[in-house]
Design a protein around this nucleic acid. Structure first.
Lengths: 116, 116
DNA sequence: ACTATAGTTAGCTTTATGGCTAACCAATCA
DNA sequence: TGATTGGTTAGCCATAAAGCTAACTATAGT
């Protein structure tokens, strides 16, 4: 399950809609197709992409294929974002304490100037 | 700042690397280019894409262009994921309580059967 | 003024994406 | 068994993506 493919899969509104639908529970290809104007084969392509990205799994029984969300894939993406957030927040924290330091120095300098 | 474009921008390893680099603070185009084997114009394209997705902002002073992370864009993506997670977790909760109910009924049925 | 640096523009290739139609299985249902 | 339903394959098209080179612009340093 590659980050590239997961992000790629989510970069299309149709596919995000499918993912959102599947958050509510399993669905057949037909059910998934209903809300869209798209021809079935086009929609199937999207499902394939979702599958190969690891976001969706499906299994065929009889003639209907049921699709379900693979939440781990979404969790992986969340994880990546969380890591980045941590990094930039740490940096902002350092920056803030640095600015604090500057301010204090400013004040003490001001005192010195006044007492000259 | 469209979800489509943000996810699309993040679906490329080079661009994710740039984003990661920028989490550590501002950088010029040249600095960003260093770690990659890519020709400059190719890298510039990536920067453009990151900019048009809203993930990165840049400003040119003199002859160097400084790029910085726009954390709101990343936050938006995190938000979308969080919403989906909430939905599927609620469903799993409902499912769990449903299974609990079934179990209890099973037990009470078992008691009834025993007391027959 | 000359040269080196830092980006930028233009234009080309190759490959991938997103959509379509038409024809084709394979399981149900009547 | 014959028709219907649910999905699948194959193949076409238009556009966008990711890379390149070559040539250009505009600042900074000497």
């Amino acid at each position: 399950m590659q980050l590239d493919h997961v992000f790629g899969a989510l970069s299309d509104a149709t596919r995000r809609a499918i993912v959102m639908r599947l958050c509510d529970g399993e669905a057949s290809v037909g059910e998934l197709a209903k809300p869209f104007e798209m021809a079935l084969p086009s929609l199937m392509k999207h499902i394939r992409i979702l599958e190969s990205s690891g976001l969706v799994a499906s299994e065929k029984t009889g003639r209907v294929r049921m699709c379900s969300l693979q939440t781990e894939a979404l969790a992986t993406v969340e994880g990546w974002l969380a890591v980045q957030r941590e990094i930039w927040e740490q940096r902002l924290d350092r920056l803030e304490t640095y600015v604090e330091k500057l301010k204090k120095r400013e004040k003490s300098n001001a005192r010195k100037r006044r007492s000259k």
